[in-house]
Simulated assay, not measured.
Amino acid sequence: MSEAVNRQILLVEKPTGKLGPEHFKLVDGAMPAPKDGEALVRTRYISLDAANRAWMHGATYRAAVEANTVMAGGSIAEVVASNSPALVPGDIVFGDTGWQDYAAVPAKHLTKMPRMEPMTHLLSIYGVAGLTAYFGLLHVGKPKEGETVVVSAAAGSVGSIVGQIAKIKGCNVIGIAGGKDKCNWLTAELGFDAAVDYKDGATFKALRAAAPNGIDVYFDNVGGDILEACLALMNNRGRIACCGAISQYDGVPSAHGPRGVPGLIVVKRLIMQGFIVMDFIDQRDAALAELQSWVTAGKLKVQEDVIDGFENTPKALIGLLAGENRGKRMVKV
């Protein structure tokens, strides 16, 4: 690759229905020049997240992605040149680089990461996925030993970590995932106590059988009908950590959210709280230390789904939205 070329993937139009390859275009852009206070970085691994799709709908906790711009996304990148005293060439950083080989980013918007092998762990267990699972479960869900914890999208990047942390904390853990293979993997490999296949169509019945004593903590990654099923089974003073609503992101969202919510929340004195990982960023170091100790002790398995080749990024995101991945999906640039 000539050093003067910067491959970029543009979002050429915002999808009204399901996301498809036709919504993206691979182009050769100009090499960015870092201004004062910025660093020029080269992307190494691009993070793929359901939230990428949500950004196309409009502003969330970040600005919306507009048509004919570089598709937004976080990545692990290496500093090539720096006009900031905070970073030097060779530093490894996490930041919102977008889907491109090179980006010029203000140094204050880049998080310096430790050098480690495999580097992919910086996007999964020690990145946004691991920290989202850690803070969402422990600080929002607040599970106690012996309680029943249910997590949806349990075979995904966040859900697979949430369930394992809940087991470490002595909880009874039930995962909800799509397909028998994923469900078997949750129980056989990751140590979940039970798994419910939502593709079977009888989610509520299967959940009730798996959680005969009700649900104390529900970690919600999907919203929609699954949230509705879990709400009905919540115990008094149960906690719901709202992390995402993937069922509503791609294509035409279902016409309703959970029905009967206000009544249930009052009668059962439930706490339902949304959060994003940046809320807890001041506690990041302590969380990373604990995650690292669990991985080292073999209590927490890291599952990654690395797709090779920058040009495969759109297809990899479309596949993620269709539930193809196990664990954290990313693209090796």
Rank of each mutant, 00 (worst) to 15 (best):
L138E: 07
A4W: 11
A154V: 03
S124M: 09
A210G: 07
C171L: 04
D305V: 02
C230H: 13
V88H: 04
E66C: 07
A129M: 15
V196G: 13
S84D: 13
G214A: 14
L190Y: 07
M119C: 11
W294F: 03
T97R: 00
V217Y: 09
G201L: 09
H109Y: 00
G95N: 05
T60M: 12
K199L: 06
D216G: 08
R42K: 11
G298F: 06
V333I: 11
M1S: 14
D200Q: 15
R237F: 08
K18R: 15
V88T: 08
D285P: 03
L131G: 15
V80K: 12
V140H: 10
I46H: 06
K299Q: 15
V70N: 09
N235Q: 14
L190W: 03
S82R: 07
R326I: 02
A195N: 03
G244K: 02
D197E: 13
G191L: 04
G130T: 08
A39E: 05
D220R: 02
Q8A: 10
Q273A: 06
K328I: 00
A81Q: 10
G298H: 05
D200P: 02
A210E: 05
T97F: 04
E311Y: 01
R115S: 15
T187H: 00
N52K: 08
A129W: 08
L317M: 08
A245I: 02
L137C: 14
R62V: 00
I215H: 00
K332A: 12
D193T: 01
K199T: 00
P85E: 12
A188L: 07
G95K: 00
L186D: 05
F219T: 01
F280N: 12
I215A: 08
Q164F: 03
A30Q: 09
G159V: 00
A153Q: 10
A39P: 02
A316H: 02
G309N: 11
L270K: 14
N312Y: 11
G244L: 12
L270T: 09
G146D: 13
T43Y: 03
Y249M: 06
F94S: 04
K108M: 01
R239Q: 14
V105D: 02
E38A: 01
I246E: 15
A59E: 13
T97L: 05
K268H: 09
A107W: 01
V150F: 02
F310W: 03
I215D: 06
L190M: 13
M1F: 07
S75A: 12
G263S: 04
R284E: 14
L300F: 05
V162R: 12
A59H: 07
I318T: 01
K182L: 11
Y134K: 12
G214M: 07
E311A: 13
A103I: 02
D250W: 04
M56C: 00
A229W: 12
I318D: 10
G90T: 08
D220V: 05
F280P: 04
S293F: 10
N52I: 09
N236D: 15
M113A: 05
E311V: 00
G130V: 09
